[in-house]
Amino acid sequence: MKHDVAVLGVGMHPWGKWGRSFTEYGVVAARAALADAGVDWREVGSVVGAETVRGGYPGYVAGATFAKALGWQGARVTTVYAACASGAQAINTARTQLLSGLADVVLVVGADAAPKGFFRPAGGERPEDPDWLRFRVLGATNPAYFGLYARRRMALYGDTLDDFAQVKVKNAACGALNEHARYRKPVTAPEVAASPVVADPLRLLDICATSDGAAALVLSTMDFARARSTEPPVRIRAVSTVTPTFPQTTLDLPDIATDSAATVPPGPVGFRASIADAAYEEAGIGPEDLSLAEVYDLSTALELQWYEDLGLCAEGAAAALLRAGDTAPGGRTPVNTSGGLASFGEAVPAQAIAQVCELTRQLRGQAGERQVAAARVGLSANQGLFGHGSAVVAVR
């Protein structure tokens, strides 16, 4: 395919709360990816860093920060920010450089040292940002809107608290097998039910933590990859970074009207579904072609919503899909074989890159006990604040 680029190497720093600099985490992940690729640092023509707003000035210029820490060698540097979609934007920037001939090899790095509790808002007052309005006008912080989504699913589709708990059970079982996960212990549904309520109906174990962590990829042109090995590499075939379509200006609470949405009929496709649709269209595939998917399970109920948005099932049928085992290892389309945010917690600029690390290992057949049999096509998906779409299609 004319837009394919090769994934030569993947690397991660384990997720946790380590109390060290994001730069240190990123360098560990970058060196691991370079070693995995068999590429010398001096061969890298460009470094794309996903920005971390919590890292001070070095975080604002993450590309240069990582390049300096690895040793100045003349590479181009780029820094991108798109909240939770930063990693996908970084991958897309690297892909563009490769396809345009600006570089043969690009290193993509995302790392974060997340504080405890709520993130301090970045960028000051943002009255034109619908997410900022959600925080300040509605008082709907992330756990609050996770709870609203869960209640909405319960009211509309009959989802139950046990359905939500079973998402955590599934993901924790996978995370227990992942050496990079922060939480590596299986969880039972009664344990989820017994954990403290955070935002009714969701319990503590229904909602992801915040973490330190890092992930990196070494991407190359297909010509460079073929010159290095006769083994066909994993390829990135599509990257979706789409924005919402008017009038869907309220990104996360679709039933709460804005001035525009009150007078204009909503579009036929929601924002998260449009993220996936754009990736499918570019890759020339459909949901029926997926071997596995990595989705942004900020909450257990939100993972169920992703099943529908990715087209894995009809609207309202996500819980039935889960109950049938279709999204579990060995099922029709396993979801979050890495363990997801349920097992990692959220290290914002690293997360979308980490998703592609998991897809790559699965497509290579290197996922160990988490391996999906005969994996050929994988999709990652999340979204960032202020309308940043994020989806990547990887193939083998």
Score class of each variant (00 low, 15 high):
9 G>P: 13
14 P>I: 02
16 G>F: 00
19 G>M: 04
21 S>D: 14
22 F>K: 03
25 Y>A: 04
29 A>T: 11
31 R>G: 10
33 A>S: 10
33 A>M: 01
37 A>P: 01
40 D>W: 02
46 S>E: 12
55 G>F: 07
58 P>S: 06
62 A>H: 08
64 A>R: 14
68 K>V: 14
68 K>W: 02
69 A>C: 09
69 A>Y: 13
73 Q>K: 12
74 G>H: 10
76 R>Y: 05
77 V>R: 15
77 V>T: 15
78 T>I: 00
82 A>E: 04
83 A>Y: 14
85 A>P: 00
86 S>M: 11
88 A>K: 00
92 N>D: 15
101 G>L: 07
102 L>H: 12
103 A>M: 02
105 V>K: 09
124 G>Y: 10
126 R>M: 10
130 P>W: 03
131 D>P: 00
133 L>V: 14
134 R>C: 10
146 F>H: 11
147 G>D: 08
151 R>G: 13
157 Y>C: 06
162 D>P: 14
162 D>N: 11
163 D>F: 11
165 A>D: 04
166 Q>V: 01
166 Q>K: 15
167 V>C: 05
171 N>R: 12
171 N>G: 03
172 A>M: 09
173 A>Y: 07
174 C>W: 02
175 G>E: 04
189 A>G: 08
193 A>F: 13
196 P>S: 12
196 P>D: 10
197 V>S: 12
198 V>C: 06
200 D>V: 00
202 L>N: 12
207 I>T: 11
212 D>R: 05
218 V>P: 08
230 T>N: 13
231 E>D: 15
231 E>N: 01
232 P>R: 15
233 P>A: 01
233 P>M: 01
235 R>G: 01
235 R>W: 05
239 V>R: 05
239 V>N: 06
243 T>C: 03
245 T>L: 11
252 D>S: 11
259 D>G: 07
265 P>C: 00
267 G>W: 06
268 P>L: 04
269 V>Y: 12
269 V>K: 04
271 F>H: 07
275 I>K: 04
281 E>F: 00
282 E>C: 05
283 A>T: 00
283 A>Q: 02
289 D>Y: 11
292 L>C: 06
295 V>I: 08
299 S>G: 12
305 Q>V: 06
317 A>R: 06
325 G>V: 05
325 G>C: 08
327 T>E: 05
329 P>W: 10
329 P>N: 02
330 G>Y: 05
331 G>C: 09
331 G>E: 02
337 T>Y: 05
342 A>Y: 00
343 S>K: 03
344 F>P: 10
344 F>G: 10
344 F>A: 03
345 G>P: 11
345 G>N: 12
347 A>V: 14
347 A>M: 10
348 V>G: 04
349 P>A: 13
356 V>N: 05
357 C>S: 05
361 R>Y: 09
382 N>H: 01
382 N>F: 01
383 Q>P: 01
384 G>I: 11
384 G>Q: 06
388 H>I: 01
390 S>Q: 03
391 A>L: 07
391 A>F: 00
396 R>Q: 14
